[in-house]
Every structure is written in C-alpha cells, then in structure tokens.
Design a protein around this nucleic acid. Structure first.
Length: 276
DNA sequence: AGACGATGCGGAC
DNA sequence: TCCGCCTCGTCTT
C-alpha cells in the first residue's frame, strides 16, 4: 500500500508516538546502533511524497523509502530495548511506550538534517500532492516540460519529479474520474484537464489519510459490504461501476493501468476548453 | 504447497 | 522499454 497517502498516515501516527520523547533505541540497517544519537529527542516526523523523514536533535535525520515491499509496524516497546527485533530490521526506533520497526525497506539512511535540501532523491521531487494546498500550477508546469509532454498522461503523473506521492492505484483511479484515456499524451490535454487531474488526486489522497483502507468510491455508491472500493484498479473484466462496460487493462512502461474503454475515450483529445 | 502478482524504483539494454 | 528485486498476501492445486 505504500503510496503517498500511506506514508503520510504513518508519519502522522509515528509523530504522535515519538515527537518530544527521547530515543531509548535506534538501529539503522547497515549502520547498526548509533551511539551519537543515544537519548536524543525526536523533533519531527514528516512525509515528503513517498519518503518518510524522522528528524532528531543533534542534526540528524532518518530517511526511509519503503519501495514496494517495505512495511512499518508499531508495537509496545520491549523491555530489552528490542535488540533482537532491531538486528534484522531495516530500521528500528523506540521513544516512549511504542517501538516502530521497519522491514523490507528499499532505502534507509541517516543523513545530516542540513544536507536534506541537497539530497539527490528529495531535491528532485515535484510538489507533494498531500500538502494542505499543493502547488498545482507547478505540477502542470513540470508536466509540460519537453521530457514529459509527449509521454502518456498515466506515466507522466506517476513521475515523482512532476508531482510526488501518486502511485499506481491513484494513477488509474484519477484518470477514470476525469474521463481521460491513460494513453493520451500530455500535450493532447487542455491545461485545465491537467489541473483537474492533480486536484482530484489531492482530494482522493487527502480523504484517505483518515481511513484504514484506501477507497475512492463513496460509501453511498456501495450498496453491499463487498462492493468494490475502487472504481477500476485491479478490476479487469469486471463491469465499470458507471456504465457496466468491462474494465480494461493496459501495460505502460511495465505497470498496469486499469480504465473503462467507454468512459475514457482516446478521441476525447478534443476536450472542453482550450487546447494548449 | 506452490504460483502469481504487487503498492516502486533504478539500472541495463 | 524491460527486468530484477527475494517480500508477502492471495489464489489455485
């Protein structure tokens, strides 16, 4: 589940547990225990796109990217300081009554807080879709750069240097809601359509921050307990929830995109409003 | 029990 | 554009 909404949800919960408390355990894969941070207090936990940052006093920050397989787990702090759990974890930290253990992460590192702005991964991120009022104009501008405007809109909006936090589930869901065929190149869309794509992404993702399970179909449109929670994602062959046409799947740059061939037409390149 | 596919990313071609 | 990652939940045998 690690798209931006998942990471932001974790950051919020982790912050409530850890901020203002002193570390009683910290271990980072490949680094091991960190004597310099013994007893240091946790100043802030934040998410930037799909990256999680934990800032400590004394000028250090932990950066974690879960990739596809990474997980965070929250458990009661163990009396022994969790040395055993820490030994094989990607990252392990305790401050106060709860311990946070990360397994299977794609990248974990301790970075000097002052160097974060120049970090090769973080510095290239586009504006975060989960900011309270994200910079939509900047996202649209980035999507119109030479390297992006000729790409399929589906792959473009997944690019973390255009906008950060959006992943494969929202990619399909947002384009369905906006009625845009995923294979259309960015330059075939009106600027207004791109704005709506990012605005809808922001809304869907923000709404899901407070939910346990990600969903995009409103509860009022889900008559049964097992009604689909997502419009099209992973629903290949099943009826579109709006028009009953079979949901189709397209592989773009190795990733599946799900869409409704009736609701999202290729020839809707002639869309409302001005064409770029 | 085993096969399959996945939420993400980067490197190889 | 494609593949590998060696992990885990879900579905099939």
């Amino acid at each position: 589940m690690p798209e931006g909404d998942t990471i932001h949800r974790i950051a919020r919960r982790m912050g409530k547990d850890l901020v203002g408390r002193s570390l009683t355990a910290l271990a980072v894969q490949e680094v091991g225990a960190v004597p310099e941070l013994e007893g240091a207090s946790v100043e802030k936990v934040e998410a930037r796109g799909k990256h999680l940052l934990v800032h400590f006093e004394r000028g250090w920050s932990l950066r974690v990217h879960l990739g596809m397989k990474g997980r965070w787990r929250r458990t009661p702090a163990s009396p022994g300081g969790g040395r055993h759990a820490a030994s094989r974890a990607s990252a392990y930290l305790t401050a106060g009554p709860f311990a946070w253990t990360c397994a299977g992460a794609y990248q974990v590192e301790l970075v000097r807080t002052g160097h974060l702005s120049a970090h090769p991964r973080l510095s290239r991120l586009g504006p975060d879709l989960l900011a309270p009022s994200p910079d939509i104009a900047a996202m649209v501008r980035r999507a119109s750069f030479p390297g992006h405007r000729d790409r399929a809109v589906a792959t473009c909006i997944m690019d973390q240097t255009v906008a950060s936090g959006l992943g494969n589930v929202y990619k399909s869901e947002v384009l369905f809601l906006e009625g845009i065929h995923p294979a259309l190149p960015v330059h075939a869309l009106a600027q207004n359509d791109m704005e709506k794509v990012f605005e809808t992404a922001h809304k869907l993702m923000t709404d899901n921050l407070s939910r346990r399970r990600r969903e995009t179909v409103p509860l009022t449109l889900r008559p049964w307990a097992n009604s689909p929670r997502l419009w099209v994602y992973r629903r290949e062959g099943d009826p579109c929830l709006r028009c009953r046409t079979a949901v189709a799947r397209l592989v773009q740059e190795g990733r599946s995109t799900y869409f409704c061939p009736s609701c999202q037409r290729r020839d809707q390149g002639q869309r409302t409003g001005t064409r770029e």
